Amino acid sequence: MYKRIVLKLSGEALAGDRGFGLDSQRVQEITSEVVEVRKLGIEIAVVVGGGNFFRGVAQQAKEMDRVAADNMGMLSTLINALALQDAIEKHDVQCRVMTAIAMDQVAEPYIRRRAVRHLEKGRVVIFAAGIGNPFFSTDTAASLRAMEIKADVLMKATKVEGIYSADPVLFKDAVKYDEITYMEILQQGLKVMDLTAVSLCKDNNLPMIIFNMNQPGNIMRVAQGEKVGSLVTA
Rank of each mutant, 00 (worst) to 15 (best):
Y2H: 13
R4E: 01
K8L: 03
K8M: 05
S10I: 04
G11P: 02
L14E: 10
L14R: 12
G16A: 12
G21P: 12
L22R: 02
Q25A: 12
R26N: 11
S32L: 07
G41A: 02
I42A: 07
A45H: 01
V46L: 10
V47F: 11
V48Y: 05
G49F: 02
G49R: 01
G49I: 05
G50V: 04
N52Q: 06
F54V: 02
A58V: 02
A58P: 09
Q60R: 13
A61E: 03
A61M: 09
M64L: 12
D65G: 06
R66P: 13
R66C: 02
R66T: 06
R66N: 04
V67I: 15
A68I: 13
A69G: 07
A69F: 04
A69Y: 02
A69C: 09
G73A: 08
M74L: 13
L75T: 00
L82S: 09
L84S: 11
L84M: 15
K90S: 13
K90M: 12
K90H: 14
H91I: 08
D92P: 02
D92S: 13
D92V: 07
Q94R: 10
Q94W: 00
C95V: 12
V97E: 04
M98Q: 14
M98L: 14
V106A: 06
V106G: 00
A107K: 05
E108N: 13
E108G: 03
E108K: 14
P109C: 01
Y110Q: 02
I111A: 14
R112I: 10
A115S: 15
V116F: 03
R117D: 15
H118Y: 14
L119A: 05
F127C: 10
F127G: 05
A128G: 13
A128L: 08
I131T: 15
G132V: 09
F136D: 05
D139P: 07
I149W: 01
M155Q: 01
K156N: 12
K159F: 00
I163C: 08
Y164P: 07
Y164S: 07
S165E: 09
P168V: 03
F171Y: 14
K176E: 10
E179Y: 11
I180C: 08
I180S: 04
I180D: 00
T181Y: 03
Y182W: 05
M183R: 15
M183Y: 09
M183F: 08
M183W: 05
E184C: 09
E184Q: 15
L186N: 08
Q187W: 04
Q188L: 14
K191Y: 05
V192E: 10
V192M: 12
V192C: 11
M193C: 11
L200P: 00
C201T: 06
K202S: 11
N205R: 14
L206V: 09
P207N: 10
I209Y: 01
I209S: 02
M213F: 04
G217E: 03
N218S: 11
I219T: 04
R221C: 08
A223Q: 09
Q224A: 10
Q224C: 15
K227W: 10
V228R: 06
G229P: 08
L231T: 15
V232F: 11
V232I: 15
T233H: 14
